[in-house]
């Protein structure tokens, strides 16, 4: 849903990246203290990170080992989240899946940040034909029904994790390009850039030292919001059969497959991965909101 957040509020126009960074840190501490929801989201994020890093090492069972004798068992002391159709331990699968889902989210966001950020800054800073090309490309992508575009890309390139990442990055491209363009455009002729120019800095150097640091905060907000969207997008692709390869555990595919068992009463197969997915998306969205409060100078008091 974060695909909609195209309205970028202009951020700090001050120079001095270091100073603003310290201030931001202080402000962050204040915001998290002030805003319990963001605090909880941050705590959740830490838990997700831990699961992603050491998850495979701490789970009680192999996420791939089947045990057909213990298939479709409800949650119990042996199997906290129950077992699936093939008797695989759902708790282990859900925890281990964290790494892959986080990877999908992080890499797709990193990719779109690289593509959209560079294109947008170039468009905003240099203007002219670059601006035209980037603008047209973004318009064209925006005119597509985005989920269907993602489907098309994955169907055409093959359903691998890499292609899911690429597809997610492409459909988010316009958003990043536009934000970066707007931010770069505002600053192109600002005082601190003029000053840098006068002191003999090359355009490239100005982009790297003056423009980029200043648009980072708003981009970070966007990235947080997009990460949640990336996970949802992957889940949607799984639902129509374009997800990752079995038997790899991934939340979306587990929810999609488990959904078929809801009516028969085996709710846990869809519930736990669904809950994990929801918490992750929830956490990224709230974090994004919280970060927005941090970088939005209008709200600094």
């Amino acid at each position: 849903m974060s695909a909609l957040e195209t309205e970028a509020e202009p951020t700090a126009t001050s120079s001095g990246f270091m100073r603003s960074a310290t201030a931001t840190l202080q402000h962050a501490r204040y915001t998290f203290a002030e805003n319990p929801v963001s605090g909880i989201a941050f705590a959740l994020f830490v838990v997700l990170l831990i699961c992603a890093v050491i998850g495979p090492a701490i789970v009680p069972y192999s996420p791939l080992a089947s045990d057909t004798a213990a298939a479709l068992k409800p949650p119990s002391l042996q199997h906290w989240f129950g077992t699936d159709q093939l008797g695989r331990d759902m708790f282990s699968r859900v925890v281990v899946a964290t790494r892959l889902d986080m990877a999908i989210a992080v890499f797709s966001v990193a990719l779109v940040f690289a593509m959209g950020g560079v294109a947008g800054i170039a468009a905003g800073f240099f203007g002219g034909w670059i601006d035209q090309v980037v603008g047209r490309t973004a318009d064209t992508i925006m005119a597509f029904p985005l989920f269907v575009l993602a489907m098309g890309i994955v169907a055409a390139l093959g359903n691998t994790v890499t292609n899911i990442v690429i597809a997610t990055a492409i459909i988010n491209f316009p958003l990043y390009a536009r934000i970066a363009r707007a931010e770069a455009n505002i600053r192109r002729d600002s005082g601190f850039v003029q000053a840098a120019r006068l002191t003999g800095n090359s355009e490239m150097r100005i982009v790297l030292t003056q423009i980029l640091p200043n648009i980072m905060p708003i981009m970070v907000v966007q990235m947080s919001l997009t990460m949640g969207y990336a996970i949802l997008n992957a889940a949607g692709l799984s639902f129509i059969g374009l997800g990752v390869k079995p038997p790899t555990p991934e939340w979306g595919i587990m929810v999609a497959e488990g959904a078929g068992f809801i009516v028969s009463g085996d709710w846990w197969i869809a519930f736990f991965p669904g809950a994990a997915l929801m918490l992750a998306v929830f956490c990224f969205n709230l974090l994004g909101d919280g970060l927005r409060d941090i970088v939005d100078p209008q709200r600094r008091t």
């Binding site: 979306g252 929801m278 909101d289």
Partner: peptide, 20 residues
């Protein structure tokens, strides 16, 4: 905070799952 949590919860589930 509640408004924010409610609104965010709405987008946090895959639509096919909430539909089912």
């Amino acid at each position: 905070h509640l408004c924010r949590v409610v609104a965010t919860a709405g987008v946090s589930l895959p639509v096919f799952f909430s539909g089912l």
